[in-house]
């Protein structure tokens, strides 16, 4: 309750929430705003925004409605963001909590695996995964989740390392409770706030990674994602720059929204840090 109030008091958090809600409404109501296939032929190609009142944001080089693609693309970007982040957070927390709680040889082994993942640039790893497993929207999402978990694991481990020696955890040991109870009920809830805040960073990066893949024309071409639109616009960048610029602004605003929400969460969940600033 107190955290919710603190969250709503921060202007950054409110602006971020409004932006994200707008994107969410766009995604959810896409079929209502623009019924029909957003990738279907709609009119003459490369019409500038405002040139034809039927196409609010103009058409791309294949004659498809950019506004329809933006609205439907919101759905894809949010979906990739949420699902990939969930995958990364679940893997990260599982590995980080076990490593941090048990320490010793378990910790050493798990952390070497984590470092192995971290030493590879994650975009290169993503390219390899997509090249091997194909580029449907499902594999792209899972691949993004797989390359994003190491920092989450490290953060969770650090929290666990300091929390596991606290008196309240020791008290539960003395009460005869199992390790599973200690990890899930005692330590994890206390370790979660910084991880939740970091999840917003993971989400922003996930959306960017998908766009980057699409820009290289390696993402799923059969879905109307913002990245695909930027990729298409690449060929006409010098003359009809709006084809790339409009989805670019959409990505920029969404990531801004996610970051502001993350900032607000950080202030609300770590009140002491916020006050010191």
């Amino acid at each position: 309750m107190r955290a919710a109030k603190a969250y709503l008091r921060s202007p950054a958090a409110v602006i971020g929430t409004v932006i994200l809600l707008a994107v969410l409404v766009m995604g959810v109501g896409a079929d209502w705003f623009y019924p029909g296939d957003p990738l279907g032929l709609a009119g003459r190609p490369l019409q500038w925004p405002g040139q034809n009142p039927r196409f609010l944001l103009g058409t791309d080089s294949s004659g498809r409605d950019i506004a329809a693609q933006i609205v439907h693309g919101a759905r894809i970007s949010l979906l990739i963001g949420f699902v990939a982040t969930s995958i990364a957070v679940v893997i990260g927390i599982a590995i980080g909590s076990v490593a941090g709680f048990y320490g010793g040889a378990t910790d050493t082994a798990l952390m070497r695996v984590t470092e192995a993942f971290q030493t590879l640039p994650n975009f290169i790893l993503l390219l390899v995964l997509v090249a091997v497993f194909g580029s449907t929207i499902e594999t792209v999402t899972i691949a993004i989740g797989i390359v994003s978990w190491p920092p989450v694991a490290r953060l969770t481990r650090a929290e666990f390392l300091s929390l596991r020696t606290r008196d309240f955890v020791q008290a539960c040991r003395v009460q005869g409770l199992s390790d599973a109870h200690l990890i899930l009920r005692e330590v994890l809830p206390n370790a979660l706030p910084p991880v939740i805040v970091y999840a917003s960073v993971v989400m922003a990066v996930a959306i960017l990674l998908e766009s980057a893949l699409a820009f290289l024309e390696l993402s799923d071409p059969n879905v109307p994602s913002w990245g695909n639109l930027i990729g298409l616009g690449r060929n006409v960048l010098r003359t009809e720059w709006y084809v790339s610029a409009i989805p670019g602004v959409a990505i920029l605003l969404t990531i801004l929204g996610v970051s502001l929400v993350g900032q607000g969460l950080n202030d609300a969940l770590n009140p002491r840090l916020a006050r010191a600033r």
Partner: peptide, 30 residues
Amino acid sequence: AAARLVQMVFQDPYASLNPRRRVGAQVAQG
């Protein structure tokens, strides 16, 4: 098995209770 035989009261009352759980649950969980 040891929990039935010996129990401990800790020094720092601020650190020995989990801040995120109801106190009754922390007493009853053992």
